[in-house]
Nucleic acid binder design. Structure first.
Lengths: 344, 344
DNA sequence: CTGAAAGCGCTTACAG
DNA sequence: CTGAAAGCGCTTACAG
C-alpha cells in the first residue's frame, strides 16, 4: 500500500507538505496542492488512520456498547447514533453485550484500547467496576437508555412513568385487576424502574402487585417464555401480562401460543418498546413507544459536546402509550381524547 | 494514560522486556514476568492498540459491511459473525450501508483506512468500482449473502432455488395461479436470483410471470408497501404476493391492512427470510428460512483462512420452506411428509 | 534473558 | 510556503 512517502516522491515534495494539503492546512501553494492531489489520485493513496490517530491522539470514532443487537429497539438506536455521528464527522463502532456483563466489559476494554474518542453505553448491569473506573477515566462517556447512578456521566433516556400510568389506566378501564409484569434484570435501571412505575400506578388504583406476579426476566425472549409459563401455571393466572421489553413479549407470545391460549380472550399482553411488527401480530399489541431515534441523536450530541469541550446535556424524553387490541379493547374504540399521549 | 514506558519504569526494566512479557514471549525470566505483571496491574496499564497495530501491521479486526441493520436477517448474521470472530481472537466492526451504495463505499473506505485484517461484505449493488478495486487489493475479502460475479472472492451464501420451488408447489397445490413477487434491486444477486428462481418454478407449472406481477423493491419496508399498493390496484390483483425479504413483507402487510383486506382470504403472502415474529402475525407467515447463523460462521472461517494463509472455502447452504398459514393452508394440514424441507 | 535502537506512517512545532 | 526532524506508543531484529 502506498504511503505518504510515495506520494511525496511522486509529487516531488516533502511528506510535510503532503500532510499539509491532506489536512487542508492554509499555508500551501496552489502548485503544491495540485501536484499532491494528482499524486494521491494516481497512487490511490489513502492515509493510514492508525498512524494518524497515534500521532494526533484522536480517532474521530465513537464506541457504542448496546445490550442486544437482536433487539429492534437497540438496533434502531444504533442506526440513529451512527447517522448522527456520521453527520458530525465521527464513525462509530458497535459492541454487542448480549445482556452479558462480562461481554459488555470485554467490549468496553477493546474500545478503550482502540482509543475511541468517546463511549456511549447502555450498561447491562448496575455494578461493573470497569464501568465505574471508565467513568472516572479520561475518555468521555455518556449513558443511553440505561444508566448507573452515582457517576458523573450524562444520561440520555426515556421516562416511561407517565406511559405506564396510562397503560394501567387503560387496563383498569377494561376491567382487568390481576396484572403481572415480566421484569428485566434488577441490576439495570430499566429493569427495576419499569417494575416500580407499574407498582406505583397499580397502587393508585388500590391494586397490589404480589411477588408471584412479578417474573424475573433478563430482557431476552427465552426469559419471557419461561416467566409466562410460570404465570400460566399459577392457580389464578393474571388477566394481563406486561412485558418490560419487546423480546420478552415475543417469548410471552410463544408461551401463550404453546398453551393453546388466545390473546386477549384468555390473557392480555402489553409491552414496553414498540416495534413495527406489533401492528401485525394477532392481535396487534398495545405497547409503550420510546422516541428512539431522538434518544440516539441526543446521546451523540451529549457525547460530542463532552469530547469537544462543550457542556454536555443530559436528556430525558417521555415515552408514550400506543393502545392496540392485545388487552381487549376493540380497535375502533377511541382512547380518551383528552389524553394526548394515548394514541392509536 | 499510562504507557509502556511507565510500566517499564515501575518494573525497573526496559520497555523491550515489558513488551515481551505482554506478548508472552518465551525468553523472559520468571522474575521479570512477575515484576511486569505487578506494574501493569498497579498502573491499570492497557496497551495502545493503535500503536501495536501500526507496528505489527495487523489489527486482529474484521470489517463487516451489511446492507441494513434494521433487517433482522442481517442482525442475526452480524451477531453470528461477531461471536465466531471473537472465538477466533478477532473483533469485528460493523458498517451499515442502509441499502445505499455510496454509504456502503463510505464504510468500506473507512474500514480499509483503519487497516482491518479482512473484510466481509454483502454488496448493496453489483457494480461498485471501489469493491472491484478492493477485491484486487491486498486486504482479504469474502462476500456473504450477496456477491459480485467475476471477482476472485470467496462467497458464502444460501441457495433458495429449491425452497422457492417448494413454495411454488405449495401455492399451486392450494389452487393459486396468479402469483406476484416483490423483488430486490436487480443490481444485487439476491435481488435478481430470487425472481429468476420464482419465474422458473412457475414455468414448471406453466404459469407465466408477467411484468405487471414483478414489482421493483429495494429490500426495505417502504418499497414493499409501494409495490403492494400497485398490485392491489391492478384490474386483476394477484392471488399471492411473494416478498423477496422480510422487510418488504412487512411493508406488504401494511399496504394490505391499509386497504382493509385480510391475509390469506383476500390475498396470500409469503416471504424470503424467516423471523421469529412470523409465527405470531395474523396469520402466521409462510417463509423461506436461511441457515443464517451458519452462514455467519462459514463466512468468518473463509475470511480468517484467507488472512492466515490457508485456502478459503466458498460455501452454499440450502434455504428451506417453512409452511404456515398466510397462503391459505390451515395450520393443521400437514405438509407433504416425504419432503424433509417442508416443515411446519 | 535483557536492553538500545530502529522503525511502523503519520503530524506539527521550528527554522528558514 | 516548505522541509528536516522529533515523536506518538509500540515491537523486534540485533548484540551482548
Amino acid at each position: 500500500m502506498a504511503g505518504i512517502k510515495d506520494v511525496a516522491a511522486a509529487a516531488g515534495l516533502s511528506v510535510a507538505t503532503v500532510s499539509r494539503v491532506l489536512n487542508g492546512h492554509p499555508s500551501v501553494s496552489e502548485d503544491a496542492r495540485t501536484r499532491v492531489t494528482a499524486a494521491v489520485e494516481g497512487l490511490g493513496y489513502r492515509p493510514n488512520a492508525l498512524a494518524r490517530s497515534l500521532r494526533t491522539d484522536q480517532t474521530r470514532t465513537l464506541g457504542l456498547v448496546i445490550s442486544d443487537v437482536l433487539n429492534p429497539y437497540f438496533t434502531e438506536l444504533a442506526r440513529s447514533v451512527e447517522e448522527e455521528a456520521r453527520a458530525l464527522g465521527y464513525s462509530v463502532v458497535i459492541g454487542n453485550a448480549n445482556e452479558r456483563p462480562e461481554l459488555q466489559d470485554h467490549h468496553v476494554r477493546t474500545l478503550l484500547d482502540r482509543r475511541i474518542d468517546g463511549l456511549l453505553v447502555s450498561p447491562a448491569d448496575g455494578s461493573s467496576p470497569l464501568m465505574r473506573q471508565t467513568a472516572e477515566g479520561p475518555t468521555p462517556m455518556v449513558f443511553v437508555d440505561r444508566w448507573m447512578p452515582g457517576l458523573d456521566v450524562p444520561v440520555v433516556r426515556a421516562d416511561g412513568t407517565g406511559a405506564v400510568r396510562d397503560l394501567v389506566a387503560h387496563l383498569h378501564g377494561l376491567g382487568h385487576r390481576r396484572l403481572a409484569i415480566i421484569a428485566g434484570p434488577a441490576a439495570t435501571t430499566t429493569g427495576h424502574e419499569r417494575v416500580e412505575a407499574f407498582r406505583e400506578a397499580l397502587h393508585a388504583y388500590g391494586i397490589p402487585l404480589p411477588a408471584e406476579l412479578v417474573g424475573q426476566g433478563d430482557f431476552q425472549a427465552d426469559s419471557g417464555r419461561r416467566v409466562t409459563e410460570g404465570f400460566l401455571a399459577l392457580p389464578e393466572p393474571p388477566d394481563v401480562v406486561f412485558a418490560a421489553d419487546n423480546l420478552m413479549a415475543l417469548g410471552a407470545l410463544d408461551a401463550i401460543r404453546a398453551r393453546g391460549l388466545a390473546v386477549p380472550d384468555d390473557i392480555g399482553l402489553a409491552a414496553f418498546d414498540d416495534i413495527p411488527w406489533f401492528v401485525h401480530t394477532g392481535p396487534p399489541i398495545t405497547a409503550i413507544a420510546q422516541p428512539t431515534a431522538e434518544l440516539g441523536r441526543a446521546a451523540v450530541h451529549a457525547l460530542t459536546d463532552l469530547i469537544e469541550g462543550r457542556p454536555p446535556q443530559s436528556v430525558t424524553l417521555p415515552a408514550r402509550l400506543v393502545v392496540r387490541r392485545s388487552c381487549g379493547e376493540p380497535a375502533t374504540t377511541a382512547p380518551d381524547p383528552r389524553d394526548p399521549r394515548s394514541q392509536l
